[in-house]
Design a protein around this nucleic acid. Structure first.
Length: 273
DNA sequence: AATCGCGCCTGACGGC
DNA sequence: TGCCGTCAGGCGCGAT
């Protein structure tokens, strides 16, 4: 499942090939993603120059002079850079063909992703306007997080996955960051101490930076059909390691469910206080 | 107001 | 082998 690092790695991988290029064709093959892909997109984008491609949280933003394409990969989406003559694969839902013959196809088996269009200030779009700070920016600070956690009874793990608090932290990275910070996932947010908050902010930033770095090294794979997303190259300390020994202390990793999501943690290393 | 839980969807996997 | 049930999960939205 693409989280922030995978989206950022994708952005960095494709930008040099397509920014400044003109859209030759925009083809929709399967318009029913999470929301319908706007039917008028082929006409709107034809002959438009891609001015820039940026990211907000897990949203990829394609900036054109006449508007912005908003793309989200949901659970299973990815972009494949390919030859325009190559055979389309199952779950290739749409395709952007640029004037330099660079061809990008959105492949998303589960279709939880979306492709939308706005002519307004994209930051004010309903999907983006309520998003919290970028985790790798200085706005995601100990002071900020402390303030957000104040009076919050919700446990820290689902709290951390709330995009209004901080963007881009999905199940894998929330789980891993709490292990790294030594915090029990069921600790109510308001009970997280200053010291724990310091560890948590540092852990989130470090894990995301490392994941982006690893993704960058496997970027050609990521952009190809055979590729694996960057996080596969990460050493996951607890996620998916139920009953296996903790890498720190050997205690078997425990798995629970929080808000319908699997959470793995070490009962020895991750404390409630 | 804050938080929970549903539903969208397909592929992987396990049991029979 | 094949079929079928279960699970996984991001995230907006409606319910509580």
């Amino acid at each position: 499942m693409p989280e922030l690092p995978e989206v950022e790695v994708t952005r960095r991988g494709i930008a040099p090939h397509i920014v400044g290029q003109i859209v030759k064709r925009f083809n929709i093959y399967h318009p029913t993603l999470r929301w319908p892909v706007p039917k008028q997109l082929p006409k709107l984008l034809a002959q438009q120059t891609l001015l820039d491609i940026t990211r907000r949280g897990k949203y990829l933003l394609w900036q054109f002079a006449n508007g912005t394409l908003i793309m989200h990969f949901g659970m299973s989406g990815k972009l494949c850079m390919t030859d325009k003559n190559s055979k389309r694969k199952t779950h290739d839902h749409l395709e952007l063909l640029f004037s330099n013959d660079c061809c990008l196809r959105l492949n998303d088996p589960r279709r939880f992703g979306c492709v939308l269009w706005t002519t307004q200030d994209v930051a004010q779009h309903p999907l983006l306007v309520n998003l919290g700070p970028e985790p790798l920016s200085k706005n995601f600070s100990v002071k900020y997080l402390q303030q957000q956690m104040q009076n919050k009874q919700q446990t820290i793990k689902p709290f951390l996955m709330n995009s209004a608090v901080v963007v881009g932290i999905g199940n894998i990275y929330a789980t891993e960051a709490l292990f790294k910070a030594g915090i029990h996932p069921e600790l109510p947010a308001k009970k997280v101490t200053l010291e724990q908050t310091q560890h948590l902010v540092a852990a989130v930033k470090q894990i995301l930076r490392t994941a982006i770095h690893h993704g960058g090294t496997t970027i050609r794979d990521y952009l190809s059909s055979s590729g694996k997303p960057g996080y596969f190259s990460l050493q996951l300390a607890v996620y998916g390691r139920e009953d296996e020994p903790c890498l720190n202390c050997g205690t078997p990793i425990v798995s629970i469910r929080q808000a319908q999501r699997a959470t793995a943690y070490c009962p020895q290393c991750q404390k409630m206080c």
